[in-house]
């Protein structure tokens, strides 16, 4: 009687049509002590499933690391900013030149000034030479 029922359940089981409750029944039957000898082969299948369910993860979860690591993220940002500031400081302070360069620059400025003055004076000279054109004008009037 019971054997027939188990066989029917097994058929459904292998077709994938058994319900969870029926599968539980099979599980109980095959993990029990009076398994019919002709069904012995199925016993290891069901005991394997129940064995497998006992396996547990042994590692301890470490999610609490995460909030700390998000703080570390801020440390990272802060460190980057600091490094950038230092690098920028070096780059900009380096525009302060050596003594020689400063002297050269001063000399350059002075020369430029002097040359500008010269050209100014020259321009004044040329301005006063405009009057010379009058000769051409007068000459053109007479010699047409």
């Amino acid at each position: 009687m019971e054997l027939d029922r188990i066989k029917t359940l097994l058929d459904a089981y292998f077709e994938g049509t058994s319900t969870l409750a029926q599968e539980k029944e099979l599980q109980d039957y095959f993990c029990g002590s009076n398994v019919a000898p002709q069904l012995e082969a199925y016993r290891s299948m069901f005991s394997a499933f129940s064995e497998a369910k006992n396996e547990v993860s042994s590692r301890v979860l470490k999610v609490d690391n995460n909030p700390i690591s998000s703080q570390k993220w801020w440390y990272g940002i802060a460190a980057t900013v600091a490094v950038l500031a230092i690098v920028a400081g070096f780059v900009f302070s380096n525009t302060g030149m050596t003594k020689e360069e400063k002297e050269a620059l001063a000399a350059y400025k002075q020369t430029k000034q002097a040359l500008q003055l010269l050209s100014q004076k020259l321009n004044q000279g040329t301005e006063s030479l405009v009057a010379i054109n009058q000769f051409t004008v007068a000459k053109n009037k007479i010699l047409k």
């Binding site: 082969a41 290891s44 005991s47 394997a48 064995e51 497998a52």
Partner: peptide, 18 residues
């Protein structure tokens, strides 16, 4: 192998299924 697996090993049929 941990204890469980050694226990499983003892049962040839079960380890065969795995």
């Amino acid at each position: 192998q941990d204890n469980l697996e050694r226990r499983v090993e003892a049962n040839e049929g079960v380890s065969m299924v795995f």
